Simulated scan of single mutants.
Amino acid sequence: MHCGYFDAGVCRSCTLMGIPYDRQLAGKVAEAEQLLAPWADAVWLPPVASTPEAFRNKAKMVVGGTVDAPTLGILDADRRGVDLQGCGVLADGLRDAFPAITAFISRARLEPYDVPARRGELKNVLLTESPDGRLMLRLVLRSTESLARIRKHLPSLLEELPRLAVATVNLLPEHKAVLEGDVELPLTADETLAMRLDDVVLHLRPGGFFQTNTAIAAGLYRQAREWIDEVSPASVWDLYCGVGGFALNVAAPGRQVRGIEVSEAAVEGARISAADAGLDVIFEVGDATALTADAAPDAVIVNPPRRGLGAELCATLDGSGAHTIVYSSCNAESLARDLAAMPSLRPERVRVFDMFPQTGHYEVMVLLRRR
């Protein structure tokens, strides 16, 4: 893949840009194999490759420039806006939507936030595309000062961008380097974006986590379902369940499935998905690390953040009655630490899923069985 932004030195986020994709993937597999070398008996399945470009279903764009000439992209070393609307790793549908959004910013007189001066209103534009091309737009603002103008000009944006299904204002009044705040104000009647992956529809609410690469996410869910169905457990818990992708995919008649997630928005979306699909899956807002060994089900699926499970949860799982663990990790280093902390569970199969082409990041899924 060729990227003019990378060649010009204005954006170096894609650290592997310019390296042939087959070499990128081989390097990721080699790194994962090295980190998981202590478990030499595990069988490595062929890696799941991604489309090397236009794979990202979400864009997290910092707003810069001026009201009349806004930029969507990143900030440079001087904290000024760098426009990246043509970024090649973003899905075509996201890039096609940017002109209408920038025109809307100018029409509604949304002043881009000036980080050095700590002045302005619009901080970030967060845009997500569903597999059927519908969009969720979140405008991250410092206050509600411009809310009336946004509502006034929203009909024109919806006319120019008919694929826009969900729009919200997110409030982030603090001057800090985060993407979004805690308060979400809906602008449209629809408040969830339907994400269909194979035969499961996931309802994504603003603030709910969803994997960046739709095709690879579907591959992860298929693999987890295959491994879970092989052992046919009577009960499964999905820890760090997000919008419920794993839990809903492993649901089956007679199987008790429960998802636990700290994000209320994600759990609310997961409950809608379960109800629409007619699946008897329980979703709870809670801390995954609060699991106790005596409450553990037959099988557990874990998909933790980059820091991994941590010593406490590893000890709980290791001492529990769960006979099967499916561990989906976005950080092979923390994965290796966690596997070492669960000696009663033996990795049987491992597979790399390339969620993030052009970067050094990837997902690894491991099937563990009790010794």
Rank of each mutant, 00 (worst) to 15 (best):
Y21R: 05
S13E: 14
T71V: 03
E31S: 13
E33L: 09
M17P: 07
P38W: 11
A8Q: 13
L45N: 11
Y21L: 14
G18S: 07
G9D: 12
V43D: 13
T15H: 07
R79G: 03
V10N: 02
R56P: 05
R23E: 15
A42N: 05
G86T: 04
G73K: 00
K58I: 06
D41N: 11
A37M: 13
K58G: 04
T71D: 02
Q24W: 07
L16I: 01
E31D: 13
Q85D: 14
A91Q: 15
D76K: 02
L36I: 14
D41M: 12
V10I: 15
D78E: 14
D41Y: 00
D68W: 04
A59Q: 09
L72I: 03
R80D: 04
A49S: 15
I74V: 13
G9I: 06
P47A: 13
A30F: 10
A91N: 14
E53K: 09
A30K: 11
T51V: 12
T15G: 03
M61G: 06
L35A: 14
L35C: 10
G88D: 09
S50R: 08
D7N: 11
L35N: 01
C14H: 04
L36F: 15
K60Q: 12
C87R: 08
K28Y: 11
Q24E: 14
K60L: 09
V43I: 12
K60I: 02
A32Q: 10
V63S: 03
E53C: 10
L35T: 06
V29K: 00
T66W: 02
M61T: 06
L90M: 13
E53A: 14
I19G: 00
R56D: 02
G9S: 09
W39L: 14
M17E: 15
G81I: 04
F6M: 08
P46T: 03
K58A: 10
E31L: 12
A91S: 15
R12K: 11
A42K: 00
D68R: 09
L45D: 15
G81W: 01
F55N: 02
P70I: 02
G88V: 12
A40R: 12
T71A: 05
D68P: 00
L35Y: 08
K58L: 08
A30Y: 08
L36P: 14
N57H: 08
T71G: 02
D76P: 02
G9C: 09
L36C: 13
T71N: 05
S13K: 02
K28A: 12
Q24T: 05
D83S: 01
P20T: 05
D76C: 05
F6Q: 07
L45Y: 08
A40F: 00
G18D: 09
G65L: 03
R23I: 15
V62E: 05
D76M: 05
F6Y: 15
P38C: 12
D41T: 11
P38V: 13
E53W: 00
P47R: 06
W39K: 09
A42R: 00
A54T: 09
P47E: 14
C11A: 06
S13Q: 13
V82Q: 00
R12P: 01
L84N: 02
M61V: 08
A49F: 04
S13G: 15
D41H: 11
V48A: 15
D68A: 11
D7H: 01
R79D: 03
R23F: 13
G73I: 01
Q24S: 11
A37D: 14
F55R: 06
V48F: 07
S13P: 02
V62N: 07
D78G: 10
G65F: 01
P70G: 01
P70L: 04
L84S: 03
L75F: 15
G65Y: 00
